[in-house]
């Protein structure tokens, strides 16, 4: 029986899983007031619930990696669904960023000293990785059934 995933899926899961988890941890640490020195460099805000969400995304990828390493065929589901979820979060943060921008035009006095990059959250730029994954495995994301692949595991 042919496996439905290869090294590419596993590397992807490992990379995305690690990144989302690490950024999530930083974001939570910042939220608790621990200075990690990271925020200035890569716009990590202090945000406990937001950081937890990133960690959940990371966990989804890592769980898929674990199953794939165990040779469970359907473990690749976690990669595809993880991609979809990350993109949902990316869209959410982009909308929030758009809202902030619009607001800074309507009530500029509330936004003195505000920089648009403050809204450029990790949820957005980390999303480019899953976006690439989505483009790479385009054929797996058909519209009607969201995802389709052969039963194997």
């Amino acid at each position: 029986m042919k496996q439905d995933y290869g090294n590419r899926e596993m590397i992807f899961a490992a990379l995305s899983g690690a990144l989302y988890t690490i950024f999530g941890i930083f974001q939570i640490a910042e939220g608790f007031g621990i200075n990690t020195g990271m925020p200035e460099m890569i716009f990590i805000p202090g945000d406990i619930p937001g950081g937890s969400c990133l960690m959940v995304l990371g966990a989804v990828f890592l769980y898929g990696l674990k199953e794939m390493l165990q040779g469970i065929n359907a473990g690749v589901s976690f990669v595809y669904v993880g991609i979809l979820m990350s993109l949902v979060f990316m869209a959410v943060y982009l909308l929030v960023m758009g809202g902030n921008m619009l607001d800074s035009i309507i009530v500029p006095e509330d936004y003195e000293g505000w920089n648009i990059m403050e809204a450029f959250r990790p949820g957005i730029y980390l999303g480019f990785l899953p976006l690439m994954g989505m483009l790479c495995w385009k054929d797996r994301f058909s519209l009607h059934e969201v995802l389709v692949f052969r039963e194997g595991a």
Binding site: V56, A59, V60, Y63, A74, S77, F78, Y80, V81, G82, L84, S142, E145, V146, L147, V148, F149, R150, E151, G152
Partner: peptide, 17 residues
């Protein structure tokens, strides 16, 4: 075929996640 619904369910109804 394991349908898309099945795949999504495998993840979102996972015991831990």
């Amino acid at each position: 075929r394991l349908s898309g619904s099945d795949m999504v369910d495998r993840v979102v109804t996972n015991k831990y996640l």
